[in-house]
Design a protein around this nucleic acid. Structure first.
Lengths: 169, 169
DNA sequence: CTAGATGCAAACGTTTTGCACCCCG
DNA sequence: CGGGGTGCAAAACGTTTGCATCTAG
């Protein structure tokens, strides 16, 4: 993420905290920076080692801050199966994206599709509701791997599954 | 669920266990019966108190059996947000169903829509994959509650949210 | 008879909480 | 100065595992 966008995100976070009468402490700033610096999905526990000792933040604060960011709408909890609780920082840039997971190498591909959103709208209204949010997760097997016996992702994947490796479509 | 269908399900489970060289013990039978007797989503922990002392099964066996039923395809793990890990026994009868969750009363509505499946197929192939599974969760606010100030589900919902209360569409 | 299944309790990883102290406005 | 924020450690929670014992086939 370019420094300019990150700056905008920091501003957005600060505005949210201010609007709730909360402070934008250096711990919170360090966390927002770390979370939105790249586009990787993460577990709360992942963040602790990534904060240098200069920006060390306690485990409790990590969890409390994540909850606030989710409440603000900047961060979304997603589930990719297996009961793992992940957080996705990419809804700011792609508010309607979905996830496709390769069953062969577990690579995660984020994609958007306007038809899905139209259909979501229709279905929701048909059932008597106004749409607020959706989560669509598709799993599929890699055609390339099956036809060619190899796949660029799978090659990379030699070193086990790589969470957070993503392609934007 | 009518006794006849339940019987069929027990047979299916038994066949699956046999195909893997596993036994169909009375604990497993008790669990399958309990899980598929009605259509409620459940947490593993929910099951223990529901097994009478006559069919008591240990916690470890509950978890181990659920894992096997998921592997067999008879049971599916779903996530309705909040990191809760739920299991849905209704994919046997409605293999393609999705979930709509009312943000007002947390009621869960299971629905099917053939268009979604067509679209899922298109998208998956466009990305170079063959579809194997999908999970779509929609959240929405209740039109009726907003327009009329009341809603039958919400009325029932007085006693907090009722997980497992469902309408088939 | 024996591989697989069970129950128990301990271990595990993650998340939440109570509380004393700290610090920003 | 006061109310929010933090860190720490303990607790809570859901799930998994090792092991001795049991049992279905």
């Amino acid at each position: 993420m370019d420094p300019q966008s990150l700056q905008a995100i920091l501003g957005q976070a600060q505005a949210f905290f201010a609007s709730k009468g909360l402070r934008f402490t250096k711990q919170r700033e360090a966390l927002v920076t770390l979370i939105f610096r790249n586009d990787e999905h993460f577990k709360p526990e992942d963040l602790l080692p990534k904060l240098g000792k200069s920006h060390a933040v306690s485990r409790a604060t990590v969890y409390r801050t994540i909850a606030l960011l989710v409440e603000s709408g900047m961060l979304r909890e997603i589930s990719l199966g297996g009961g793992e609780r992940l957080y996705d920082p990419n809804f700011l840039q792609s508010p309607h994206h979905n996830h496709l997971i390769c069953v062969d190498c577990r690579k995660i591909i984020e994609f958007e599709d306007p038809n899905i959103d139209v259909m979501q709208n229709c279905i929701t209204r048909r059932l008597g509701f106004s749409p607020t949010q959706k989560a669509l997760r598709i799993e599929g097997s890699c055609d390339r791997l099956r036809l060619l016996g190899t796949c660029p992702n799978f090659k990379e994947g030699k070193k086990k599954s790589i969470p957070g490796t993503k392609r934007r479509v």
